[in-house]
């Protein structure tokens, strides 16, 4: 029975420790600056980090099967740019169509990368490095190096990211979308066979193949899911910032991966949870938002982010080592 307790603590330790860190962090910031935990501030925080939060879920799919995708920043740029261009040239289109276009392009990009990785047997880091160049280059090429500026967008599109009609006038649309997606993915990973198959492939691909799981399909699906969410975020991004530039989303992949890592997703596959990713992304978001409020210069933010990632992964290792050592002590000789 004692052993069982240990196991439980391994699997849940990441989430609990993140919650503790978050509470301490928020408490500290709130103590120093009472403007922090106000509804407006929180809404702002979630609105601005919706993109990272949503994409982190997709990244988790990919990391779960032992893959990685560093092309997401470019995919976001490409899909968002295509959608924006379409909007510029067809101003009568409703916002939903633009969103669908962006999603479709993102999904195709993701699926293509998945194809290259599964059937082409290209290591994920290389395939997505290539994809990163290709999609970024295409984002510039389709736009002929031009921007799409705020005045070229329809009001309906721009307003989407600012208004609250999906949240019945209470909560911002983007927050509603984020919450819906998180609930959907929580159900998907916990209670559907397809979700569990992703874990199975990440845990032991060979066994999964022998037991009849179509690994290639799962892999392509995971990259397509990430592409889908990235496409959605491409539209959200352009709507939120009311412009589309060729270089938008550059470096976003690192933020997204960092959110997953802080949230306890293993880069070796098989381990990670929706709750963990949420907390990881939230931690990174709060760090980004809260530091300026307590007088930390904006120029310190990047360094602090980097430090958090390093400390998080090292703490993880130390915790695991302590658990292992404890288990050994318990062994009778």
């Amino acid at each position: 029975m004692k052993k069982k307790f240990n196991l439980k603590s391994i699997t849940s330790s990441r989430e609990t420790s993140l919650v503790i860190v978050l509470v301490l962090l928020c408490g500290f910031v709130q103590f120093r600056n009472s403007a922090f935990l106000t509804p407006g501030m929180i809404e702002n925080l979630f609105k601005n980090y919706a993109v990272t939060m949503i994409m982190a879920l997709g990244m988790m799919c990919v990391l779960l099967i032992g893959g990685i995708d560093i092309a997401v920043g470019s995919t976001l740029g490409f899909s968002g740019m295509c959608a924006s261009l379409f909007l510029r040239d067809h101003t009568q289109m409703p916002a939903i169509v633009i969103f669908l276009i962006s999603i479709a392009i993102g999904t195709i990009c993701g699926a293509l990368i998945g194809l290259v990785i599964s059937y082409g047997k290209v290591p994920p880091i290389i395939a997505t490095l290539g994809g990163m160049y290709v999609f970024r280059g295409l984002a510039y090429l389709v736009a002929k190096n031009e921007w799409v500026s705020a005045y070229q967008f329809t009001d309906g599109y721009k307003d989407f990211a600012q208004s609250k009609y999906l949240g019945f006038g209470l909560v911002n649309n983007l927050i509603i979308i984020t919450i819906l997606i998180y609930i959907l993915f929580f159900i998907f990973f916990k209670w559907t066979t397809l979700g569990r198959k992703i874990y199975a492939v990440g845990s032991n691909a060979e066994a999964a193949e022998v037991s009849g799981i179509k690994i290639h399909r799962i892999k392509i699906m995971c990259y397509a899911i990430l592409g889908f969410l990235t496409g959605l975020c491409g539209a959200i991004y352009t709507s939120l910032y009311a412009s589309a530039q060729g270089d938008m989303g550059t470096g976003l992949e690192m933020d997204v991966i960092a959110a997953c890592v802080v949230g306890g997703v293993s880069l070796n596959g098989g381990r990670g949870s929706v709750a963990g990713v949420f907390l990881g992304a939230l931690t990174m978001a709060i760090v980004g938002r809260a530091l300026p409020l307590i007088g930390v210069s904006q120029f310190w933010q990047t360094a602090i982010k980097g430090l958090i990632i390093i400390v998080a992964v090292i703490l993880n290792v130390l915790a695991q080592r302590a658990i292992d050592k404890n288990n050994l002590k318990g062994r009778e000789m």
């Binding site: 990440g202 845990s203 032991n204 066994a207 022998v210």
Partner: peptide, 13 residues
């Protein structure tokens, strides 16, 4: 049903 030489388990599940 087959039980293979190398245990074909999913360690994380």
């Amino acid at each position: 049903a087959a039980i293979y030489q190398h245990v074909t388990a999913y360690p994380h599940l």
